[in-house]
Amino acid sequence: MQLTIELDETLNRLTAEFKSSPEKVSQAIRRTMTKLSRFSERQVLRELSRRVSVSQALLKNLGRVKVTLEPPGRHGNNGYQVVIWVGLSAIPAHYLGNPRQTRSGVRVGRRFWQGAFLLQPVNSNHAMVFKRAPHWQHRKQISQRSGKVMWMGLPIEKQVLSIYEHAGDLLSALESHLLERFTTLLQQELNFAFNIEGG
C-alpha cells in the first residue's frame, strides 16, 4: 500500500513569490522535504507499531515501512514527492518473540495461538508456529529429513499476524498530519534561509 504526497502547486507558487531569490527558496524546499520524509517514516512506524502491538524495530527490520524522497524529474514529476510504502504481508508468528509450546497451543510474547504447535521446516533454522486447517485429515507424508513415511494431520497453516486492515486507515489518517508538518517545516526553513543563513 502506498501514499504519495505531491506538493508541486504549493512549491511552484512559493518559488514564484520569492523569484528574486530562487536559490534560497530551492535550498529551503530541499531541506524541508528531506526533513518531511524522515518525519513521515517515524510517524508511520510509530503509528503502525501502536496499532498492531509490534515494535518499531521489528517493522523496520522486516522492511514493512519504506519512505523515499523523489527529486524533481523522477517518474515525470515536476517537484519533490514523498512516497510512503507499507508492506501488507502478514508477519509470521515466530518473528513476534520466542515461541513456547504449551498443552493447548503456542505462546509468543503476549499472543497465544490456541491449538497451534511448533514445527521446524527443513529449509529453516528455527521452529515456526503452525496450526491444522479446519478440515484437516491424517495423510501419509514422506519426511524430507529421514525419508520415512509418517502419518500427519494435513493441511497445516503457518500462523501470522495480519497488518492489512490497519495500513489503509493509517495512511489516510496521517496524510493531513503530514501536510501540516510540511507547512511548519517550510516556514522554519524559509525563515532560516532569509533571516539567519542569508543575513
Rank of each mutant, 00 (worst) to 15 (best):
K35W: 14
K35R: 12
L36T: 02
L36P: 04
L36S: 04
L36N: 02
S37L: 03
S37K: 03
S37N: 07
R38F: 15
F39N: 09
F39H: 13
E41A: 05
E41C: 08
E41N: 07
R42W: 14
R42V: 15
V44P: 00
V44N: 01
L45N: 02
R46I: 10
R46Q: 12
E47M: 06
L48V: 08
L48S: 01
L48P: 00
R50F: 12
R51V: 04
R51F: 06
R51S: 10
V52S: 09
V52P: 01
V52F: 02
V52T: 06
S53L: 15
S53F: 12
S53V: 11
S53K: 12
V54E: 01
V54P: 00
S55R: 06
S55V: 08
Q56K: 14
L58Y: 01
L58V: 03
L58A: 03
K60R: 07
N61C: 05
L62E: 01
L62G: 03
L62V: 00
R64A: 05
V65G: 01
V65M: 00
T68Q: 07
L69W: 00
E70V: 08
P71E: 14
P72G: 01
G73C: 05
H75T: 14
G76L: 07
N77R: 15
N77W: 10
G79E: 09
G79N: 02
Y80Q: 01
Y80A: 02
Q81K: 08
V82G: 03
V82A: 02
V82L: 04
V82K: 00
I84M: 03
W85L: 12
V86W: 00
V86S: 02
G87D: 07
L88E: 14
S89K: 13
S89D: 07
A90P: 04
A90L: 06
A90W: 08
I91W: 03
I91E: 00
A93N: 04
A93C: 08
A93E: 00
A93P: 02
A93S: 11
H94P: 08
H94T: 12
Y95P: 05
G97E: 04
P99R: 03
P99H: 02
R100W: 08
R100V: 11
R100G: 06
Q101E: 10
S104L: 07
V108S: 01
R110W: 15
R110G: 12
R111T: 12
R111E: 12
F112V: 05
F112L: 09
F112C: 11
Q114I: 15
G115A: 15
G115Q: 13
F117M: 14
L119G: 13
L119S: 07
Q120G: 09
Q120H: 11
Q120N: 14
V122H: 13
V122S: 15
N123Q: 15
N123L: 09
N125L: 09
H126C: 12
M128F: 05
M128S: 07
F130V: 04
K131R: 11
K131D: 11
K131F: 08
R132S: 14
R132D: 15
P134N: 09
H135I: 13
H135S: 14
W136A: 06
W136L: 07
Q137L: 12
R139E: 11
R139Y: 02
K140L: 12
I142P: 04
Q144N: 15
Q144P: 14
R145A: 10
K148A: 11
K148T: 11
V149Y: 14
W151S: 15
W151P: 09
W151V: 11
G153V: 10
G153H: 10
G153Y: 10
L154S: 09
L154W: 12
I156H: 06
I156N: 04
